[in-house]
Structure formats: C-alpha cells, structure tokens
C-alpha cells in the first residue's frame, strides 16, 4: 500500500498536460495496488475546471491558490512540498521540466529522499522501483534504484495524448495554505517571465520537424517552419545547427539539448549522431529525410526518404497543403 503525491505544474494558470499525463500514469499504478492512493498538489492560481475531464482515477488534489505561488519560487514551492510530504507519502512525482530540475534536487536533500530521473521502471507487480536513463551521449542506458524509503521521481515526458475518463473520475479539490514558517529571508525572486510569442515548446510538442547540417543554413529552416505550422508542430534542431547560429539553443534536441517525446519526429538533413539520438529515444514514429542512404538516422527511423531536403521538402509541403485542402 503506497501513498503517492503528484505535483501538478501550472504555468500562467493553465495546468501542464505533461503533469496530467504523470497523474494518469500514477493512477494506473495505484489501480493495481489495493489500498494505494494518489494525491495531487497544484501551487498557484490555476483553472482546474478547464482540464478537469483529462484527470483519470480518484483522489484529492490540494490547491494552494496564493498569489505568492503564481510564478515559480524555489523557497515557497519547497516549503509547501516539504510540509505536505510530512503526511508520509512514499513517493513524489514530477513531470520533468525546468521547474522540477531546479526544485527536486533540493527536496531530495531536505527530505532525505532518493531522486530518480528518467523513464519510470516498475517491478513485476507494476510497482515503481527506479528509473532508466540514457548515459554517455546515448551510447548506454542504466537503471537507477532508490536507496531510501521516500522517493522522488522526475519523469521524462510520456508519449501520447492525455486521456481521462471524466465520467469515472472522482477528484476532490481541497484548498491548502502555504506554511508561514520557515521563510524568514527571501533568497531569490523571479521578477518576471518573458514569454515568446507563438512558441510551442519542443518538450511538449506532439509533432517535431527537426533539421541539421543538411539544411544548409538559417534560410533552410524556413521550410521546416512552414511544414511544422501545417502539421501543428514545433521546429527542432541538431547541435550543429545551433552551434552555427542557425537556430536557438532552446530548440536543440539531444545530449546537450532537450529530450523530447513527440508522436511524430521528422528528421531533415540530420545524420543522427548518438548525441542527437539520445534526445529522441522516447519519440513515437521517426521519419528521416537525408541524401545519404547510409546515414545513421535511418537505423532508428521507421520511415526513410532518401533525397536532398531542398528538393523533397517543397514537394512534401505542397502535398500536405493539397491534402489539407481536400480534407
């Protein structure tokens, strides 16, 4: 019997789908363990009703609505979670994000809890017992096992869309307050957040159109922008494209960039170095377009198209447009 706590991250008052995915995954685990419970925590004002139908299962969701918690604040968030974890939860779950990366290691020390990052690993009964993660530029993978009773899981994005069962779920939302003790001195403060316009983050995108050296330059990516827009996806880039200054680092996929889990990954003019492949191990269908039939990317692709991206992509864009017009 386990008590699980899931941190549900909000940004600008909207709950992140990646966190709801983790909630639903933990519900699946709890369903196979009689007596186990799942509890959620939302820090900051958020519109829960908007996504209520996406939540599966049953349980209490604590909601701390204080204005202090609207933007991420390391001390406030830590104090809220440390206080709640006193209720003997056996595991705390995060969906991997810049917030969890900043917060979870501090909580791990404070709570003397094992911190596990990566894909959830379960034992033969379906109970979480560690995390699997690529190491050494994606050339190896390892299983990490917890050595403490309390565990913190920071989980990579789960592929696929959230699917709740609104008619069967029973979620009770209860207010909770930020503990007033323990924060005597404000160490750091987020002054403001500057959001980019029309920016679908690659870590959350359903479809990613990614480009590498073969795109030939900054202009080459215009085709990828167009294709991504048609498909409702985001543009990604290889390390080479980022180092050359063609794209921003926030779009970099791989070892020194982001780990992504889209349903569709279209790799264009990208050879597929191990460092890049390390970032797409959780991708669903991989489509590769490359002029070199021996490029390593084809070894991890489900579908390959041998050809020059500068000839293939315009035709592909036209074909997509034509399809969208007809349907």
């Amino acid at each position: 019997m386990n008590k699980y706590l899931v941190f549900l991250e909000q940004r600008e008052g909207a709950l992140k789908k990646s966190s709801i995915n983790i909630w639903n995954r933990v519900q699946e685990i709890a369903a196979s363990e009689p007596g186990s419970t799942v509890t959620g925590l939302i820090a900051g004002p958020a519109n829960i009703l908007e996504n209520a139908s996406l939540f599966a299962g049953e349980g209490v969701v604590y909601h701390a609505t204080g204005e202090d918690l609207r933007v991420y604040h390391q001390q406030y968030y830590a104090s809220l979670l440390v206080e709640l974890m006193q209720e003997n939860y056996s595991a705390l779950f995060f969906a991997d994000s810049s917030l969890s990366r900043d917060l979870a290691p501090r909580l791990s020390v404070d709570l003397q809890a094992s911190l596990l990052t990566g894909e959830l690993h379960t034992d033969k009964n379906g109970i979480p017992d560690g995390c699997v993660r690529p190491l050494y530029s994606g050339q190896a993978k390892a299983l990490f096992a917890p050595q403490r009773h309390v565990r913190i899981y920071n989980l990579s994005p789960l592929r696929g869309r959230v699917a709740g069962f609104s008619c069967e779920s029973h979620i009770q939302v209860l207010p909770i307050r930020l503990p007033q003790t323990g924060i005597d001195l404000l160490l750091s403060e987020v002054r403001r957040i500057v959001f980019r316009e029309n920016s679908l983050d690659i870590a959350e995108a359903r479809i990613i159109v990614s480009g590498g050296r073969g795109m030939g330059g900054r202009e080459g990516f215009n085709m990828l922008e167009e294709l991504a827009a048609l498909l409702g996806g985001a543009v990604g880039a290889s390390r080479f494209a980022v180092d050359e200054g063609w794209r921003s680092h926030r779009e970099q996929v791989g070892q020194t960039g982001k780990t992504v889990a889209p349903e569709l990954y279209i790799a264009c003019g990208l050879s597929g170095a191990p460092q890049h492949l390390a970032g797409i191990v959780s991708a669903g269908i991989v489509v590769a377009v490359n002029s070199d039939p021996h490029a390593p990317i084809f070894q991890v692709a489900d579908y390959g198209f041998v050809g020059d991206v500068h000839l293939v992509l315009p035709k592909l864009i036209d074909a997509v447009k034509e399809f969208l017009k007809k349907n």
Binding site: S114, G130, Q147, D302, Y303
Partner: peptide
C-alpha cells in the same frame, strides 16, 4: 550512504527496420 544506486548498465540498442518511401 548513497541516495541512488546504479543497478545495471547496458549498451543502448535501438535499431529499427526502416521502411523506405519513394514519394512525398
């Protein structure tokens, strides 16, 4: 004592059979 223990490490095998497509 450590918080986590690396209980196994192995090479990352992820080869797929690529299906080649001829037209856009």
């Amino acid at each position: 004592t450590p918080f986590v223990f690396m209980s196994s490490i192995e090479p990352y095998e992820r080869k797929k059979v690529c299906h080649f497509i001829e037209s856009e």
